[in-house]
Computed example of a mutant assay.
Amino acid sequence: MEHNNNSSLGAKLKPQQKWNQINWSKVEKFVLRLERSIAKAVEHHDFAKVAKLRRIFFHVK
């Protein structure tokens, strides 16, 4: 899975942005897709990929 740097998910939020300005449907789709990718990698015993995907999951701002 490729991480899209142009997405608003990867951008740091400015302090003046409000919580409700976040595109929550886009965040939810990103998280669900990433979770599915992690589960698939676990099923295939591809633990290097699992580690890579977990890093993405925990470091997206």
Rank of each mutant, 00 (worst) to 15 (best):
M1I: 05
M1S: 10
M1Q: 10
E2W: 02
E2Q: 10
H3F: 12
N4S: 07
N4P: 04
N4W: 03
N4C: 02
N5R: 15
N5C: 01
N6W: 06
N6L: 12
N6I: 01
N6V: 02
S7L: 09
S7R: 08
S8L: 05
S8C: 01
S8E: 08
S8R: 11
S8K: 13
L9K: 07
L9I: 15
L9C: 01
L9M: 13
G10H: 08
G10C: 08
A11L: 10
A11N: 09
K12D: 03
K12P: 09
K12V: 00
K12E: 06
L13E: 03
L13K: 13
L13P: 05
K14D: 11
K14H: 09
P15A: 11
P15D: 09
P15Q: 10
P15F: 03
Q16G: 05
Q17D: 05
Q17M: 11
Q17N: 06
Q17C: 02
Q17Y: 02
K18F: 03
K18L: 12
K18Y: 07
W19C: 08
W19D: 12
W19R: 00
W19E: 13
W19I: 11
W19Y: 11
N20W: 10
N20Q: 13
N20E: 12
Q21L: 03
Q21K: 05
I22E: 07
I22G: 03
I22S: 00
N23M: 05
N23R: 11
N23W: 01
W24G: 01
W24P: 03
W24I: 10
W24Y: 14
W24N: 02
S25A: 14
S25F: 08
K26C: 04
K26T: 12
K26F: 07
K26L: 12
V27A: 08
E28P: 06
K29C: 00
K29L: 09
F30C: 05
F30V: 01
F30I: 00
F30E: 11
L32T: 10
L32W: 02
R33T: 14
R33N: 13
R33I: 03
L34D: 05
L34M: 00
L34K: 04
E35P: 02
E35I: 05
E35F: 04
E35R: 11
R36H: 03
R36F: 06
S37D: 15
S37V: 04
S37T: 08
I38H: 07
I38V: 14
I38N: 04
I38L: 06
A39L: 08
A39V: 08
K40I: 12
A41Y: 08
V42I: 15
E43F: 00
E43V: 03
H44D: 15
H44C: 00
H45Q: 15
H45R: 15
H45K: 15
H45E: 14
F47V: 08
F47A: 02
F47E: 10
F47C: 07
F47H: 10
A48Y: 12
A48G: 15
A48D: 15
A48F: 02
K49D: 10
V50T: 03
V50E: 00
V50D: 07
A51Q: 14
A51E: 14
A51K: 14
L53D: 00
L53V: 00
R54V: 11
R55S: 13
R55H: 15
R55C: 06
I56M: 05
I56T: 11
F57N: 04
F57T: 02
F58R: 12
F58W: 10
F58V: 13
F58I: 11
H59R: 11
H59I: 02
H59V: 05
H59P: 03
V60E: 09
V60R: 03
K61E: 12
